[in-house]
């Protein structure tokens, strides 16, 4: 049976997923060797038992926490996939600001708002956390793949190693942080 891979983007920009697609035609080769479980590229909405879970993005709201824990429960290996999952990334720039100030500015005082706007408060909206967290602050993480985003070459080498059960080693030029 092919090993299963699940992927998700929490507080990320999908750039790491784009870099995964940047393996170009090797994507077809990858699809021969693994099966995708929950991922933004298909319509599977809940994660099942998987060999590998790739987590893009940090944790910025209550829903991210739930999704991340679901992935941890079901995946043998959890990978912090890219800068935001590894250390919070650019969205964590809001960590030095007060949530209330941002809310009021965005929904009540910024220019060009219709009269009488107020802060969204519907129960359908997940609660934002007052800090953006790297995923290892919430769950145990097996591997960290840095880069904003990690290059397609790095992702290809990393996944190939994982799929055949080898500890991934990124050689010169593949381990980057930009």
């Amino acid at each position: 049976m092919k090993p299963k891979i699940a992927t998700t983007s929490l507080a990320g920009c999908f750039g790491c997923h784009m870099s995964l697609l940047d393996i170009d035609l090797r994507l077809l080769e990858l699809l021969q060797r693994v099966e995708f479980d929950r991922s933004p590229i298909n319509d599977i909405k809940t994660v099942g038992p998987c060999a590998i879970g790739l987590i893009e993005g940090g944790v910025c709201n209550a829903e991210n926490v739930e999704v991340l824990r679901e992935f941890r429960r079901h995946c043998k290996i959890i990978v912090a996939f890219g800068a935001c999952a590894v250390n919070g990334g650019l969205p964590a720039q809001r960590n030095h600001l007060d949530l209330r100030d941002i809310l009021e500015e965005v929904y009540q005082t910024s220019p060009g708002l219709a009269p009488g706007c107020s802060i969204p408060n519907d129960p359908e909206l997940p609660l934002p956390l007052n800090k953006v967290h790297p995923i290892h602050e919430i769950v145990r993480v097996d591997y960290f793949l840095p880069g904003c985003p990690p290059s397609a070459e790095a992702i290809w080498k990393f996944l190939n190693d994982l799929i055949i059960g080898r500890t991934p080693v990124l050689g010169h030029g593949l381990l980057r942080y930009d």
């Binding site: 209550a62 926490v65 965005v106 408060n121 909206l125 609660l127």
Partner: peptide
């Protein structure tokens, strides 16, 4: 943008 909820949420490590 940001939102508010009629809730309290705790995040545990």
């Amino acid at each position: 943008a940001l939102g508010q909820m009629p809730l309290e949420v705790l995040l545990y490590d």
